[in-house]
Write a protein that binds this DNA or RNA. Structure first.
Lengths: 185, 185
DNA sequence: GACTTTTGTCAACGCTTGTTTACATAAGGA
DNA sequence: TCCTTATGTAAACAAGCGTTGACAAAAGTC
């Protein structure tokens, strides 16, 4: 048996991401994670201290928001909608935002992490495009639509009602446009 | 000790609703439910057959959607947004939709129930107002925004970013208006 | 009031969970 | 090579879970 602590930790983190994203925090057992990583369950405690710490280490979100300051003003919403779709439907099957959304439903820790992502990534991005005064309100509105879309599609797994991706992107893009740049009522 | 099976079942259902809505299905134990209902845990099995059946009995959703056929066409979105807000922030602290949203995050059964509510209550309502052809697509879009709003506010418990309710209702109402009656792109 | 049925109580079962402990084995330097 | 350290294994622990079955007590019936 070849031994390599770093590789073992990495395998655990990858397996943890996949399992957490599919079943949430409570629905995932350390034994399952260890089994998928082909590693002894006890090593989770040796290397991370426990399930909770493994979760914290495995889930760190970077939305990788595009720089929209050079985008034509009327295309901001569509560009952003496209960005999220590409991330979600992209190559990596275990998108971390899904993990958080699923887990935050019953875990206050994860809920706080979502608010952190909003405050540190979405709000500043909007503040750089629109008036600083309303940035947090606009970010909140964006969150309701984006989280709702992700929840509906990837957590609930609701079929798209035979709507082409393009159309969904277009409609949601319009909404984001209103939330981010149009004047609020 | 006074004995009344009906009253006992009722107390169990009420306690179950509250607990499930606060902690979701997995996060709630039958012992907790029984304790809150001041009832012996074994009675859950006697009267309902088990935890799963109690959940099914406790969570039956009726959105009580208003009749929008007589509403002025341009007020449909705002009226609907107002309706949901009133329900959520209303008297009963244990709104059932919250239970479902929270639980559906990790429980396929609950996820199916949400789709059922959408298909049997939202889609027909929209079909009666707009073209039948696009009703299910429009219902899907409405779901992404409404579920996202509920998730953000009541599951994550995210603060409203100092936005007055009126303004939230107004903005969300505009979005619903676009999703329900405006022509799709 | 005796009897049956309904309703509630109690203790335990079997199982799964996260975690820990004691031990075995590979890796690496002297 | 020998010894120490790092890494992996196996078994068990303690706690919590949903559930069950045997029993007690109230309610209803004659």
């Amino acid at each position: 048996m070849t031994r390599d602590a770093e590789a073992t930790k990495e395998r655990l983190i990858l397996a943890a991401r996949r399992m957490f994203s599919e079943r949430g925090f409570d629905g995932t057992t350390v034994r399952e994670i260890a089994a998928h990583a082909e590693v002894n369950p006890a090593l989770i405690n040796r290397y991370f201290g426990g399930k909770e710490q493994l979760f914290a280490e495995a889930v760190s979100i970077d939305l990788a928001l595009p720089d929209l300051s050079r985008t034509k003003r009327e295309d901001i919403g569509a560009t952003l909608a496209m960005h999220f779709f590409r991330r979600w439907e992209g190559d990596e099957h275990d998108d971390l935002l899904r993990v958080l959304i699923r887990t935050a439903a019953t875990n206050p820790n994860a809920a706080a992490r979502i608010q952190e992502v909003l405050g540190k990534q979405v709000t500043p991005m909007i503040a750089s495009l629109s008036s600083h005064a309303t940035a947090s309100q606009r970010a909140y509105l964006v969150a309701t639509q984006i989280l709702g879309l992700a929840y509906t599609r990837y957590v609930i797994g609701m079929p798209t009602a035979e709507m082409e991706h393009e159309r969904v992107v277009s409609v949601i893009g319009d909404t984001l446009q209103r939330y981010i740049v149009d004047p609020l009522p």
